Amino acid sequence: MIAIIDYGMGNLRSVQKGLEKVGYSSYITSDPEAVRKAPAVILPGVGAFADAMENLRQTGMVEPIHEIVAAGKPFMGICLGFQLMFEASEEGGHFEGLSIFPGQVRRLPPGLKVPHMGWNELTVRRSNPIMEGIETGSEFYFVHSYFVDPGDEELTIATADYGFDFCAVAGRDNVFGAQFHPEKSSDLGLRILRNFGKQVEAC
């Protein structure tokens, strides 16, 4: 079963329902030991970066997350959970993230409507199992005011255009992340969740 981390930032049940629709069992948990024992983990979330990191620390989730990643188990961050995977964010100041990947979380450039909300096309930059069956031009649902600026170009799997190209999907080895909400992105979003589930089966 896939563990969905509950650290008080919401959007949990919709992720669980999405997994159910594509045939994968999951459980929502705020127990660090349950996360450690999970075969795969999803870190969802909506809200503020600093509050989210503080909640992860307070609930004892930071160490189990790093253990999951180091053990080679599939791990995926969604929306805020994706941003938390990087080194730091400038949202409300300067706040350190999980540092799973190098890079910074930056505010969308001036002149753009914030938040970026609605459907947007992806441009697939490189092949990756998480993108199986997803082609350039596929649309996904975004809601965000900040974007990820990876410190390694090889991390970027797909980009989206919102007045500029930004990283919409990133990954390396067993770790994946998406700025959009697959659980709110109709059939193609469910395909992303199904592709993640396949990584669990392959372990």
Results as ranks from 00 to 15, higher is better:
residue 79 C to V: 04
residue 96 E to L: 13
residue 65 I to V: 06
residue 101 F to G: 03
residue 63 E to M: 01
residue 149 D to P: 02
residue 54 E to D: 15
residue 102 P to E: 13
residue 22 V to F: 10
residue 11 N to A: 07
residue 58 Q to P: 01
residue 16 Q to K: 15
residue 55 N to C: 04
residue 85 M to K: 03
residue 11 N to Q: 12
residue 132 E to P: 03
residue 155 L to A: 05
residue 194 R to Y: 15
residue 162 Y to S: 14
residue 158 A to T: 06
residue 169 V to I: 15
residue 98 L to I: 04
residue 154 E to F: 00
residue 164 F to R: 12
residue 67 E to S: 13
residue 141 Y to F: 13
residue 145 S to N: 12
residue 183 E to G: 06
residue 71 A to N: 07
residue 185 S to V: 02
residue 160 A to V: 12
residue 43 L to N: 10
residue 153 E to M: 01
residue 87 E to P: 05
residue 81 G to T: 02
residue 100 I to T: 03
residue 16 Q to N: 07
residue 64 P to E: 02
residue 11 N to M: 09
residue 65 I to M: 06
residue 85 M to T: 08
residue 137 G to C: 04
residue 24 Y to K: 13
residue 175 V to M: 04
residue 118 G to K: 05
residue 172 R to M: 08
residue 16 Q to A: 15
residue 87 E to M: 01
residue 23 G to H: 01
residue 173 D to H: 12
residue 73 K to V: 02
residue 138 S to C: 12
residue 92 G to S: 05
residue 190 L to C: 07
residue 1 M to G: 11
residue 178 A to M: 14
residue 198 K to G: 10
residue 201 E to N: 14
residue 160 A to Q: 06
residue 127 S to M: 00
residue 78 I to V: 13
residue 128 N to Y: 13
residue 38 A to E: 11
residue 103 G to E: 04
residue 187 D to A: 14
residue 25 S to V: 00
residue 196 F to W: 11
residue 48 A to F: 04
residue 146 Y to D: 02
residue 58 Q to W: 00
residue 89 S to V: 01
residue 158 A to P: 08
residue 137 G to P: 09
residue 131 M to T: 14
residue 56 L to I: 02
residue 74 P to A: 02
residue 14 S to R: 07
residue 10 G to M: 06
residue 197 G to Y: 05
residue 37 K to W: 01
residue 159 T to W: 02
residue 135 E to D: 15
residue 154 E to I: 00
residue 115 P to I: 00
residue 112 L to T: 14
residue 76 M to C: 10
residue 34 A to P: 00
residue 94 H to V: 06
residue 145 S to P: 11
residue 198 K to W: 09
residue 161 D to I: 00
residue 149 D to A: 13
residue 102 P to F: 12
residue 166 F to L: 13
residue 46 V to G: 12
residue 116 H to D: 11
residue 1 M to N: 14
residue 15 V to L: 07
residue 150 P to F: 04
residue 98 L to R: 02
residue 112 L to P: 09
residue 165 D to L: 11
residue 62 V to N: 11
residue 142 F to M: 09
residue 80 L to T: 04
residue 155 L to H: 09
residue 175 V to L: 03
residue 27 Y to K: 14
residue 160 A to D: 07
residue 78 I to M: 09
residue 45 G to T: 07
residue 165 D to T: 09
residue 127 S to G: 14
residue 173 D to T: 05
residue 39 P to N: 08
residue 85 M to C: 15
residue 134 I to L: 05
residue 104 Q to W: 11
residue 75 F to I: 04
residue 74 P to T: 03
residue 157 I to D: 10
residue 188 L to T: 05
residue 58 Q to T: 01
residue 53 M to T: 08
residue 82 F to L: 10
residue 84 L to C: 07
residue 173 D to N: 15
residue 52 A to K: 11
residue 143 V to H: 08
residue 126 R to F: 03
residue 151 G to R: 07
residue 66 H to E: 11
residue 5 I to Q: 09
residue 130 I to N: 09
residue 12 L to S: 10
residue 18 G to H: 05
residue 113 K to I: 08
residue 123 T to Q: 13
residue 31 D to L: 00
residue 4 I to F: 09
residue 26 S to N: 03
residue 24 Y to F: 15
residue 36 R to Y: 03
residue 32 P to H: 12
residue 141 Y to R: 04
residue 96 E to I: 00
residue 186 S to T: 06
residue 141 Y to H: 09
residue 9 M to S: 14
residue 97 G to D: 10
residue 169 V to P: 09
